[in-house]
Write a protein that binds this DNA or RNA. Structure first.
Lengths: 338, 338
DNA sequence: CTGAAAGCGCTTACAG
DNA sequence: CTGAAAGCGCTTACAG
């Protein structure tokens, strides 16, 4: 294991001091161009790689953001993560990402690790089960910046970036209502988490605006995943008379519903129709392509980075909430009862 | 900004030394249970979070793996990344991930950053354009461990995890040949990168084994992405008489081909049929669901972590190549000419 | 069982 | 323009 070359070694070769080498390599104005050039040349020849760990320890600024997400292999998160990495890199920040796997205890451990890694700020999308906000509060108390995105916690005194969950779902349902549907079911996520609660509110408001009574039997709570969608659809089926159309709280849930419908031998749109909050690049190729509210994951990710960095650089900063509008994508479904 | 609690502060409160506090918190056997208990209690009360940067600098072991991938929002990589994080965490390692965005220069910078961050080893899937292997060689020369996965570089003296690209593609094409197809086109990636080269070799071998002549006009090189698939299909169309079936080098490319076919007004399987190397969870819901070679991204990710960690812990270790077999998923396409 | 000291590799005032 | 020194917050032999 050939040990890494250090400033000390370079100093020995060039016959100067560690501090001079350090300053020369960071292009500090106090060093003469000649010395600078020589040191930089030698450093290159020796294959010097700065020890970033040591640098982070001794210097104040880290330019590092901690990112905590519940999952990666997911239409929304994979895109948001990619955009976050890209945007942060453009702005000269590194990202330390941790994956909680929808496990609140693990999320907490990751947060502590990131804290220990001395990140300047955090970008967070919480797990489905996160209820204890005390760690977030204590991070805030340490004056570290937190920006939540998508899965936010409203009660906290920090900024966030979301899509227009309530309005977007309202628009989606309104589209179906305009097309003549009156019996609409809803596969909800969990209402204890922000996006679940807001989207459901949008669904309910759309019905209310048209004086269509809510049928509780047509609403199933239970998660945002494919299996949750599957289970939800099965539950709906068991409960008896089905609605004409089902709206799902997420694209993943919609996939689960599609599988369930296939298994039940129900066809779209004759037996039942379906629309979804959220979609993916695969949607246009699907059977059927779903009418859906499209979330701009990349934009949400980018805005989150932008917001966090602005809070990091500008000292004074109020709680801010950025809402990225969803876009109604009209595809093959939700186009009205036969 | 309430400064973070340090060992020094705890030592002051408990009236002992920094070294004792350090040892007590890491449960070192040299410290008496009584002292240990008290220190741990006080540390908790004071809200101590160890400075991992300082710890990494002073201790030899980091238990950190650098991960470099070309992208995140991608059916293979998003799954592989998730599995890598999970497996590494299970084994007590942290992951520092960087995203190269298919940019070889950026990939190199990320590698240097990771090196500076003192990671123990690297997990890498190179960009489409990576040709210069000198940095990898110099990393190897520093006796750092490297494990490549999926997009590997064969010439390097290090271990790798791949799927059976050649055999898998051979099997996929053989399936179509068995079904009676004789005119088969191929949307290839780039042959300068491992997976592109191997998959193409499998395609060619399958034809050769049946004495079916290769028609160069039916092979298009140009990348692994959706737009590459689209462009490839368009090129094929311009070239004149189409093959009966097209095989794509990736699922993303298949999506591009589907878009192109739609635009060209060609229907599947009447006008042309399609099969794909690689699929995704969305495939079963697609129109049509593609017959495809399924790569086990999670397994590849897990094996890569396992292999790297074994190289990190066992000193002596030879170059090893793990091949995770693909699985032929027979769906609606590739089932034979009408 | 506990503590003083050196050291990890850097940066950053401060002298000169 | 250059260098000696202190310090970042920890760990780890080494004394005692």
């Amino acid at each position: 294991m050939s040990k890494a070359v250090t400033l000390k070694q370079i100093a020995a070769v060039v016959n100067t001091s560690v501090s001079t080498v350090s300053m020369a390599l960071s292009d500090h104005p106090h060093i003469s161009p000649v010395t600078k050039a020589e040191i930089q040349k030698i450093a290159k020849i020796m294959g010097y790689t700065p020890n970033l760990i040591a640098r982070k320890l001794s210097s104040r600024k880290k330019r590092t953001i901690g990112l905590v997400v519940p999952k990666v292999a997911h239409p929304f998160f994979s895109e948001a993560i990619e955009a976050i990495y890209d945007e942060a890199h453009q702005r000269g920040y590194d990202i330390f990402m941790m994956v909680s796997g929808e496990d609140a205890a693990l999320e907490e451990r990751h947060l502590r690790t990131l804290l220990g890694l001395q990140v300047d700020g955090f970008l967070i999308s919480v797990t489905e089960k996160t209820t204890d906000t005390s760690l977030f509060e204590s991070i805030l108390a340490k004056n570290k910046k937190l920006v939540f995105f998508d899965r936010i916690i409203e009660s906290l005194e920090c900024s966030s970036v979301v899509c227009d969950d309530e309005q977007g779902c309202y628009n989606l349902i309104s589209f179906a209502l305009d097309k003549g549907y009156t019996k609409i079911g809803y596969i909800a996520g969990y209402s204890n988490i922000y996006i679940g609660r807001e989207r459901r509110r949008g669904f309910e408001r759309a019905l209310k605006d048209r004086n269509i009574p809510l049928n509780p039997a047509w609403i199933v709570e239970g998660g945002f995943d494919q299996n949750d969608g599957y289970a939800g659809m099965m539950k709906l089926y068991e409960r008896g008379p089905l609605p004409q159309l089902i709206c799902t709280v997420s694209f993943a849930a919609a996939l689960g519903v599609l599988s369930a419908l296939h298994e039940l031998g129900l066809s779209i749109p004759n037996d039942i129709d379906i629309i979804s909050f959220g979609d993916s690049g695969y949607n246009p190729h699907m059977k059927p392509a779903l009418t859906a509210a499209h979330l701009d994951a990349k934009e949400i990710g980018r805005k989150a980075v932008e917001l966090l960095i602005s809070q990091l650089t500008n000292t004074q900063q109020a709680k801010e909430k950025i809402v990225v509008p969803t876009k109604l994508m009209i595809n093959e479904t939700g186009r009205g009862p036969a």
